[in-house]
């Protein structure tokens, strides 16, 4: 029994399924996130799959500034993810609102709406940096208990 539990725990870090939500980003971060999935970076090596459905996802990758409309969507999606889950914010906009912090319809970074576990700076961050971010997220993912 213990062996099974250990296997489950060790599997967690080997099979992170991610969902990417573009929360008002300029596409720069989005295409870099997508680029991670493509042959050159191929994150599926680490068992990472882009599932596109919060109910299947372990890691939520969010890019872009939060505005009044998408903050509700972001909260909804986060709520629909089963525990344990981690959030990785990418790009200057996702981290703080970036260059648009003072634009009229901008609320700010992702962490104003949901707790963020890993911050990936950059505008946009390189795919390698996003992989680093996911890896950092994964460490937190493995530590989280089934709460």
């Amino acid at each position: 029994m213990q062996a099974i539990l250990d296997f489950i725990k060790s599997s967690r870090i080997k099979s992170p399924w991610l969902m990417h939500f573009d929360c008002g980003s300029c596409n720069g971060c989005d295409i870099e996130t997508l680029a991670c999935l493509t042959p050159v970076y191929d994150v599926e090596r680490f068992g990472i799959v882009n599932v596109g459905n919060p109910k299947h996802a372990d890691i939520l990758i969010v890019s872009g500034t939060v505005n009044h409309r998408n903050k509700k969507v972001l909260a909804n999606l986060y709520e629909q993810m089963p525990h344990p889950k981690v959030v990785v914010a990418i790009g200057a906009c996702g981290l703080s609102g970036g260059v648009f912090r003072e634009a009229p319809n901008v609320v700010g970074g992702i962490d104003k709406v949901i707790p963020v576990d890993a911050y990936v700076p950059g505008c946009p961050p390189k795919p390698e940096a996003i992989i680093d971010g996911v890896v950092l997220g994964l460490q937190k993912f493995a530590e989280k208990s089934l709460a």
């Binding site: 489950i8 967690r12 080997k14 099979s15 399924w17 068992g47 525990h83 089934l146």
Partner: peptide, 10 residues
Amino acid sequence: YDVAKLLGKE
């Protein structure tokens, strides 16, 4: 791994 992880989720 996928199945094991899923089994351990909420």
